[in-house]
Design a binder for these strands. Structure first.
Lengths: 291, 291
DNA sequence: AATCGTTGTTGCAAATTTTGCAATGATACG
DNA sequence: CGTATCATTGCAAAATTTGCAACAACGATT
């Protein structure tokens, strides 16, 4: 991505500060340093004088700055011209959407995008949230709407959309579980819990439960998929954690209740993700801008 | 190397033939194909219509062609402007030179380069030919003048300079070896041989000897370095193979003779080598052009 | 109609390049 | 002097690009 080096150089010519420019472009200082070095050796002359306390443009650097700006401007202008010609963006956009996201944010996203770009064919795949990043990585899809994991490979671009609050839920029907949670001091260690099998939800649960300092949880079942978890809670099997949106949209909504005052759970960071690589693609660019 | 993709596209727009353009740029057809695809998806539109029997530029392709030519021209013009300003190319150029090459071609190369670019500081390292490519790879030097190996990593650029003929040499002094090689039919299997220890020279020897179909050679010694090999032959230890230049320049030149009519040995391909990566660097470019 | 020869594209592993982290060197500021 | 900044470099890990081989499409030829 020669393009990116030019952009960084232009920025750097302004700030005259490697650290800041690097941060602004989401790369490490060393990456920026080497990008500049690459240009310099390719050109055979110094663009910047770094004297350890300050950075200044050389004569050649100023010329290169002009050149770089020119090149970038031409690129933009080409893009504009081509998009203009096509009148409307068109093509296919494969999107993967975790089930959680499908409830909460997908409809409005899709709406607003389709309104702006009616010719773009949207191909939607829904599935397990845990697969979202894999799908993107393998380029099975262009974009995924998913929950931000704790650690994210630098390969990906993640753009936050919203917070999805989680809640602790218990059955409303009269049963042992329901009675247990209605006591003034809830005996957590005895209450059967329904755990998310894996993924970010599980992490959230573990963290939330650990803060109670009640020893090991009494695990009734582990379940893959929030919907199933809600169902199990509704059946009176135990207490669990789920996104509120899932609960609201569940057919068994009336048979579960939120437990209040039982400790905070950090909400899910819902967002849209794609390969950093593909951020230059015009369809993807359009989508990211449309949201 | 975005630059390269643009060049390839321009060429392709002319030939309208992936195979030819790919060959002209020393890449495989698939590489070219994918380079074009990359540009296309980045732009979000098709540049070329390939209908399996013919390739044609689309409307967008024509626009892109103009764009590409413009960008390349600007790059060239920038380079010119900068070089112009510097009046003279300057900097350091590290060159590694195998001993073989030092005898034969280095002086004239250096002469003509220094004449054109007197401000460039040349740092010369001589050493074992076998190390040449390693030195270049590790970027310990910018260029190496060396013998082309049988297989060459695509990482390198190799530009042929000349052929270095090899010869079979024997001692002139009266000794067993000298007597043996003077017979009308030379009993190769009995003649002690001095072998190059490794490298291209060894390969050449092996191939040459195998064609004699005389079984295993009688190996007197294996020697690293052509000079030493010549010396051993001069001392009467055996018969060996060495580049003629080395023989001509050897202080013991009078004490060895060439054996004629003993089979052909493919000459060394002497040339200059650098990383493909660094071919864009102006100093290196200048050197490659100067030769 | 079946087969062959061309030509561009794709799966895949290997080669090559780029990246970030941690360590370094250099310099200003307390 | 010690500490804090700031750019650069060694190094291993991560990401990207490449070529080969297999393939698919299609015209030419038998």
């Amino acid at each position: 991505m020669e393009q990116k080096s030019l952009k960084m150089f232009c920025h750097l010519a302004q700030t005259l500060h490697f650290g800041k420019t690097a941060e602004a472009h989401h790369v490490s200082a060393s990456t920026l340093s080497r990008a500049i070095q690459r240009i310099e050796t390719e050109l055979g002359c110094e663009l910047l004088l770094r004297d350890n306390r300050s950075v200044v443009l050389t004569e050649a650097g100023q010329q290169f700055l002009q050149f770089a700006q020119q090149q970038l401007a031409q690129w933009q202008s080409l893009q504009l011209a081509l998009n203009d010609q096509q009148t409307q963006l068109q093509g296919k956009l494969h999107i993967f959407c975790s089930v959680t996201a499908a409830y909460s944010h997908l409809p409005s996203l899709l709406d607003s995008f389709r309104q702006q770009h009616p010719l773009v064919e949207i191909m939607l795949t829904t599935g397990d949230a845990a697969d979202a990043f894999e799908q993107v990585q393998q380029q099975a899809v262009d974009l995924a709407i998913a929950v931000k994991p704790e650690t994210l490979s630098r390969m990906f671009h993640f753009q936050a959309l919203a917070q999805i609050p989680l809640a602790v839920i218990a059955p409303t029907m009269a049963c042992q579980v329901q009675q247990a949670v209605n006591q003034s001091v809830i005996p957590w260690a005895n209450i059967p819990m329904i755990l998310p099998e894996h993924g970010v939800a599980r992490k959230r649960f573990d963290y939330w439960y650990r803060r109670k300092q009640q020893g090991k949880p009494n695990i009734y079942a582990t379940v893959a998929g929030h919907e199933a978890l809600v169902s199990m809670v509704a059946l009176g099997c135990g207490v669990g954690i789920a996104p509120k949106v899932v609960v609201e949209n569940s057919p068994v909504k009336d048979r579960v209740q939120y437990l209040e005052g039982v400790g905070d759970i950090a909400p899910f960071e819902l967002g849209i993700c794609c390969l950093n690589q593909s951020r230059e693609q015009s369809l993807i660019q359009a989508f990211l801008r449309a949201i």
